[in-house]
Design a protein around this nucleic acid. Structure first.
Lengths: 185, 185
DNA sequence: AAATTCGTTAAGAAAAAAATTAACAAACTT
DNA sequence: AAGTTTGTTAATTTTTTTCTTAACGAATTT
């Protein structure tokens, strides 16, 4: 290897680190720990990695890598790739950011929808009981009614969000917002 | 006030708390602290609130409310409402979840776009220098080239995300995904 | 079967985040 | 002007989270 190759390698690492760091900061924006974000960023530049390779690259303990990978698997942005020959497990990161967006946000949004619709479904009967009671003053009834209507109205948003999730999953969103291959600033 | 009114009030609070809690958990999903999420949920059911009213409701200190409100203001989902007569500041939460979605996510996504495009813009010249150098082995050059192409390709995603942000801001997204007023399960 | 490798769980330590009390500064009241 | 009220900042404490070391169990190799 040429003597300048070492320098070039360092430059490459430097370039990678810039991107890894911004990916880490991005994931931080969405509530993912910085070190888990950095792990994703690192994997973004590797075909596949074992836990030991991650530990090596990130200078962290193996259990940290194990839990970090697990988190990323929960988001569906890292998969275990079955590789024959070695006993070690290897993991592959989702490298297509459109897929990343799809998996990450639809999962969260779907959780939001069920979570809140369930809460509404539980809260409304309680309010109905107040509204329909004969022993409650009109003022209190009105208050209950007002809250009932407010949360009933909010359901439209959750249904919309569910539609959006489906539109992202199906690819319908790319009809409205096409991906431009050659973008000019 | 009727004797049963007290009971009714408790029921109303119970119903509210169910929704507040799910809103808090939702925001937790997106990296917002639980107590800040609960603050938003609480404000969601109030026309406007002063810091002291928040403190009262959430049984927390005033500085906590102050910083919590500040966080929510950063997300643009709480505004200070100028109310004459009182010296106290009053704050109003965004109650339309479509607006909430708009403000919360477009802000984050826009940050993601600039953050990563900036990193790419900084990383690519470093890689170019390696690629164009005469003193670097072909193998290393190829590696640099491969990374260059990978991050160049990823730009399409960020441009798309920017388009999505604009589509949400302009309301174009509601053409592709209309809001259904009367939704039937 | 004994020994090694690998991943995970458990327990403890370290670090980070969040909340509280105390102190302060600005604006207003008396 | 002296004294309140209000919101924020600073300092400290508390709590939570994250990371590491140690221990374990399963699978594999020798």
């Amino acid at each position: 290897m040429k003597p300048t190759d070492e320098q070039a390698k360092e430059s490459i690492d430097q370039a990678k680190d810039l991107v890894i760091e911004s990916l880490g900061e991005t994931m931080d924006l969405y509530g993912v720990t910085r070190s888990v974000g950095n792990l994703y960023g690192t994997m973004y530049f590797e075909e596949s990695m074992t836990l030991d390779e991650m530990r090596e690259k990130l200078k962290m303990s193996k259990p940290s890598m194990s839990t970090g990978v697990k988190k990323l698997q929960e988001f569906d942005i890292v998969k275990q790739s079955f590789q024959r020959g070695t006993r070690k497990q290897t993991f592959v990161a989702e490298k297509n950011f459109f897929s990343f967006f799809n998996k990450f946000f639809t999962k969260k949004w779907e959780r939001e929808v069920t979570l809140n619709l369930d809460a509404i479904k539980e809260a409304q009967p309680i309010l109905e009981e107040v509204i329909n009671s004969d022993d409650v003053s009109q003022e209190i009834k009105n208050e209950a009614q007002s809250i009932y209507v407010q949360i009933e109205y909010s359901k439209a948003y959750y249904y919309w969000l569910q539609q959006l999730v489906e539109g992202i999953r199906s690819g319908k969103i790319f009809e409205a917002f096409p991906v431009e291959q050659n973008h000019h600033e």
